[in-house]
Write a protein that binds this DNA or RNA. Structure first.
Length: 725
DNA sequence: TTCTTACCTCTTTTT
DNA sequence: GAGGTAAGAA
């Protein structure tokens, strides 16, 4: 068979990777080195040359987008559909597994998936159920704790509390939450993975079956795998499976949510005889951009080490612009993009990257004023919108009335006279009898334990749900959705809101009907799943895009995290300020700075031709003023590759409102003004960026060049004011 | 019960 | 500065 189309366009290293003998393989793929191409060609190679059936291949990614892209590209290479191949996200594939083996996993057949918001509510209920103060035990923190433990594969009984009361309390919350989930047939994201892992591990027959079936495993973005994902891979790979891992330790930017770079660094130990292949040739960026990236990342210590190169040529130097404030920064960016457009460039060539989402607003305003179309990534997505979640709650109740999260959401939305008091008596009854809210309602009603009005309202709600179930049982999915938004009263409820927001909500609800009309493929190995359940699971797992017109030619705004895996001819990294990027927190916690630097590396390597770095000397963020020095990352880029441009003279100096603001706040009794350079005996030189308090309590916030920002009490810290030239 | 006003928090994000 | 939650007023 002629397989030249699979290898002809590849360089030597890529070809080595694609055609390697079976066995553990670690591909160190630098940014822009063609890793997706290697992955997809490897799959095609396995199938066409090694004769591996699509059934025997499991390929896993982190995002639905990446999974979809991989599937499409493999199908294109093979010229045929590859339906039975397991290509998907860790969560998607675990979900598929659990739908098939729900009995072994001890789940109800119609188990529901909780998204983050559902999960938070569920944790909140557990906390209230334990009679804990929500102020002291914020649901969100408890949720983080639970997810962290689940991501490490830990159940409450596995956690050692070491007598720590906080830990003990968290374990109690975890336990209560898990009990509630099991009762409601609810599975959160982390649970999908953990439950799949446990089911496989504790069931020899299943394990043997899947180990035999999936002789070839391929993983993308391997540096982002966390403990449980890695355990999942190792379990399925077994001792003889072939794991093909593609990753880049320099692009590991998700340590804060449990990703373990160690999985790459220790790969050899777990898989003896691992062959390592490095892809260092970059096909994306100019020499200047790559050199800057290489020099920056050199400052990290824990690296496998690699150096990107290109023969594209040097290209333009990187530009650094220091703006007066965030408005001036935005203006600079907009002007550069205007120039680009005026010389025939496309808007979609340009990406504006920032560290935190809060930075997008000023940029958005500037683009809006300039009349340039833009698109912001991140934020609320379609299936996460309030009105959509309301409608989904009704649909879930139709499918499984024991779903407590949906019950709480639907029962008084739209308002039907069931208030806190009635609801809490239902909750209590449910907790005491250890049954779902729905079940408790039924019992309360037969026992006649509610007052007249509440009783009518509650039984009215139950009848409504039961009627919906009956009336929609024969309807198609989109007709079901239509029926539900109509008869639940949701549509009328939102129609009453005549504001723009309300109108958008009504539109979204109608769009949901449309979404339900689109065909959804229930994979053939999940035959027992109803259309409705498939739709609901899909809604949770793939929350949908946040903006409809994706194909439009517009400027892209996003965080550096969400830019990973993307590339643009023209890239702006904004907010290059000490304290913002690297973030204040990462400077304070030791060891965090390296991940921050990797994030910067990711940002830089997104650029193909032109890269602009900008900062604002003065920035208002979260309603507070910040005065900053340039990010240390700027100085880590050798001056050969970067060109600093001075502000232009025709820019009217924007208002730095310190005088008025001082009057509003309090008198500055520190004797130091913001922006003042100071010298500290231990910390060295720094700049005053804030102050607070009076007399003996007066403190100043100083941004030191070497140790970052610190609050200092003036009475103790001997600060020497320096003259600024 | 429901609507309105005060208070708190606040990196990064996918599933 | 905004969004979400919690206590007060109609």
């Amino acid at each position: 068979m002629d397989v030249s189309h699979l290898i002809d366009a590849l360089n030597t290293e890529q070809r080595d990777a694609v055609t390697a003998e079976p066995g553990p393989l670690l591909i160190q793929a630098g940014a822009g080195s063609g890793k997706t191409r290697v992955l997809t060609h490897r799959i095609a190679w396995l199938n066409q040359v090694e004769g591996v059936s699509p059934f025997g291949i499991l390929a896993v990614t982190f995002t639905n987008k990446a999974a979809g892209e991989m599937r499409a590209r493999v199908e294109e290479l093979l010229g045929t559909a590859i339906g039975p191949m397991w290509i998907g996200t860790f969560h998607g594939l675990s979900h598929r597994f659990l739908r098939i083996h729900w009995k072994e996993a001890k789940l109800p057949q119609t188990f529901q998936i909780l998204d983050s918001e559902d999960q938070r509510r569920m944790v909140q209920r557990a906390i209230r159920g334990l009679d804990l103060d929500e102020k002291k035990w914020p649901p969100r923190n408890a949720m983080w704790y639970i997810n962290e433990k689940k991501d490490e594969g830990l159940r409450p009984q596995h956690i050692r509390d070491d007598g720590d009361p906080t830990e003990q309390q968290m374990i109690r919350i975890y336990t209560a939450y898990q009990t509630a989930c099991d009762l409601a047939g609810a599975v959160d994201f982390a649970e999908l993975l953990l439950r799949a892992l446990e089911t496989l591990r504790d069931n020899d027959e299943l394990l043997e079956h899947y180990q035999k079936r999936f002789r070839h495993l391929l993983v993308d973005e391997f540096q982002d795998t966390n403990t449980i994902q890695y355990a999942w891979l190792r379990l399925i790979a077994g001792d003889t499976g072939n794991l093909f891992a593609v990753g880049d330790d320099d692009q590991s930017i998700y340590g804060w949510r449990g990703a373990k770079v160690e999985n790459i660094l220790n790969f050899n130990q777990h898989f003896p005889g691992t062959r390592v292949i490095r892809l260092e040739r970059n096909y994306r960026s100019t020499g200047n951009i790559l050199n800057a990236a290489n020099a920056l990342i050199e400052n990290n210590t824990d690296r496998l080490g690699k150096n990107l190169w290109t023969d594209i040529g040097e290209g333009d130097p990187i530009t650094f612009y220091s703006a007066y404030n965030e408005g001036d920064e935005a203006r600079f960016v907009v002007e550069r993009i205007m120039e680009h457009i005026n010389t025939g460039g496309r808007r979609s060539d340009a990406a504006i990257l920032y560290r935190s989402n809060a930075q997008s607003r000023v940029l958005e305003e500037a683009f809006f004023r300039a009349g340039i179309r833009y698109r912001v990534y991140g934020g609320l997505r379609f299936f996460e919108r309030m009105e959509i979640k309301d409608a989904l709650a009704y649909l879930r109740l139709i499918s499984l009335s024991d779903d407590d999260v949906s019950f709480e959401r639907a029962i008084n939305q739209p308002p039907r006279g069931i208030g806190d008091k009635t609801l809490s008596s239902i909750r209590n009854a449910a907790r005491e009898a250890n049954v779902s809210l729905w079940h408790a309602c039924a019992e309360i009603l037969t026992a006649n334990a509610l007052k007249g009005r509440a009783s009518t309202a509650v039984s009215g709600f139950m009848t409504l749900i039961m009627n919906m179930r009956k009336e929609t049982s024969e309807l198609s999915l989109d007709k079901t959705v239509e029926y539900v938004i109509e008869h639940s009263g949701l549509l009328d409820h939102y129609k009453k809101d005549r504001t723009e927001k309300g109108e958008a909500r009504v539109e979204n609800l109608l769009e949901l009907v449309g979404a339900a009309g689109a065909p959804i493929d229930v994979p053939e190995d999940m035959p027992e799943m109803s259309q409705l359940d498939a739709f609901l699971s899909n809604a949770a797992l793939e929350a949908g895009d946040n903006q409809a017109d994706e194909g439009e030619d517009c400027v892209q705004l996003m965080t550096m995290h969400s830019a990973k895996g993307l590339e643009f001819p023209l890239v702006f990294i904004t907010g290059m300020e000490q304290g913002l990027f690297p973030s204040k927190r990462s400077v304070e916690e030791s060891g965090k700075i390296e991940e921050e630097r990797r994030l910067c590396y990711v940002g830089i390597t997104r650029a193909e031709q032109r890269l602009f770095l900008t900062m604002a000397e003065h920035r208002r963020l979260y309603g507070r003023d910040h005065f900053s020095t340039p990010s240390r990352f700027i100085s880590e880029i050798p001056s050969d590759f970067i060109m600093e441009i001075r502000p232009r003279l025709n820019v009217s100096r924007p208002m730095v409102q310190t005088p008025q603001r001082k009057a509003i706040r309090e008198d500055n009794t520190t004797g130091l003004s913001i922006g003042q350079r100071v010298m500290h005996g231990k910390f060295g030189e720094g700049t005053v960026t804030d102050y607070e308090g009076q007399g003996a309590h007066a403190r100043v916030y100083v941004n030191f060049e070497t140790v970052g920002s610190k609050w200092l009490v003036l009475a103790y810290a001997k600060l020497e004011a320096l003259n600024t030239a």
